[in-house]
Design a protein around this nucleic acid. Structure first.
Lengths: 212, 212
DNA sequence: CCACGATGTATCGGACCGATACATCGCACC
DNA sequence: GGTGCGATGTATCGGTCCGATACATCGTGG
């Protein structure tokens, strides 16, 4: 999952570790709290060893002397390679059971603007099915096995059930929206890439913004 | 977290691994999908080594002969010890940052009927604060940094923000209930849940219930 | 003058997951 | 009468990710 997210972010611009973590946290803030360096740095090393990214020490080109008295450690900037882009495309398109879990779905969804519509639909429907199953499990629990559980556990289940129902409704809307054809079909490519091409796909969600 | 959950469940009745996993999945179904054996068995071994639980091979006491031709492996039944109960009480009462994360909070909440009210309130308020901070982060993101993110990511944030707002409201209700000395009451919703008999909640006093 | 928070890179132990292996039992289906 | 299949049951292994920790630089304000 981290691998996918890193590759996706580096496709927008080269970054160093600290920045990467901030962007990661911003993009995935709705699902995960914060990515640990204990995950980030080893993963970066793994990606570099595999050839998906390159690591470049940021030494100031304007350094005249600076006789390295303090052996200044520059920031390490990571850049995605062509193979890395290929790898990302492969990862983003392949769906499995882990794609429909909470974290997996969130990461995939966060990169939907780089995903073709067929895959988007497949993921949304798979996620819906997963949540529907969880919902049924909770319903059964609250129906049949209710007397075996205490009031607090029941309240937890009830709250979880409600969350499931809301998410299914949300997914229905997104699916309908994708099907209605107003979906982006974003040109995924990047060879023309400067950093940050301004892509703004059509609003995937509902038109209502009922937040005060 | 697993340690706490196992200790809590074994306090209700001795169980073997398979059963433990089922009960764990039932009790925590709203937060986690299913506990892996790859976590469960090592943890059981760790708890046994620490003396919190005892491990007893379930050999049928009525076995006259049966000279072990097939070397039948009996089920291993785990029972909590007095030290284990002490350990559980210690774990359930101590709160830290990890208590307010998604998983930690869920596990603690699932055992609220074995938690004294002061601790319950501390946990609910800590959780509320955590979610409020997450909510503020998402609000900032949707306000200030909105133009840097694509439509799908924004939609994800919006959905996450809504979930935060709902959870805060839920927590407010629970906190108010705790303060008023009642058990979790059931909000009138209609969409969520099936039959909801008001099963007599843990009395406002202390907890301590053994299963028959 | 220096304390403090932000920036920045990095490692280590541990918790947990997913896949896998293997064995028994009862029951439906042919 | 056989046979396959799903539930029950115990267990390990490799890998991912987290939390704590360490250390260094820089700007700002008291």
């Amino acid at each position: 999952m981290l691998e996918l997210a890193i590759l996706g972010l580096l496709q927008e611009a080269p970054m160093h570790g600290y920045e990467l973590r901030k962007e990661l946290t911003a993009k995935l803030g709705a699902i995960r709290a914060a990515i640990s360096y204990g995950s980030l740095y080893p993963t970066l090393r793994r990606l570099q060893a595999a050839g998906w990214i390159t690591e470049a020490d940021e030494t100031p080109a304007t350094a005249e002397e600076v006789p390295a008295l303090t052996s200044r450690r520059g920031r390490v900037v990571y850049t995605i390679t062509a193979e890395g882009k290929e790898r990302f495309a492969q990862l983003i398109a392949q769906t499995g059971p882990e794609t429909y879990g909470d974290t997996g779905f969130g990461v995939h969804f966060a990169f939907f603007s780089r995903t073709d519509r067929a895959t988007r639909l497949r993921i949304l429907e798979g996620r819906r099915r997963t949540i529907e199953e969880r919902r049924e499990g909770l319903r059964d629990m609250l129906g049949r096995a209710a007397e075996r559980l205490d009031a607090y556990t029941l309240e937890l289940q009830r709250h979880g059930l409600e969350a499931c129902e809301r998410e299914v409704r949300w997914l229905e809307e997104l699916i309908a929206n994708e099907r209605s054809g107003r979906a982006p079909t974003v040109p995924v490519d990047g060879t023309a890439g400067g950093p940050r091409q301004d892509k703004s796909p059509p609003p995937p969600g509902e038109t209502r913004t009922e937040r005060p």
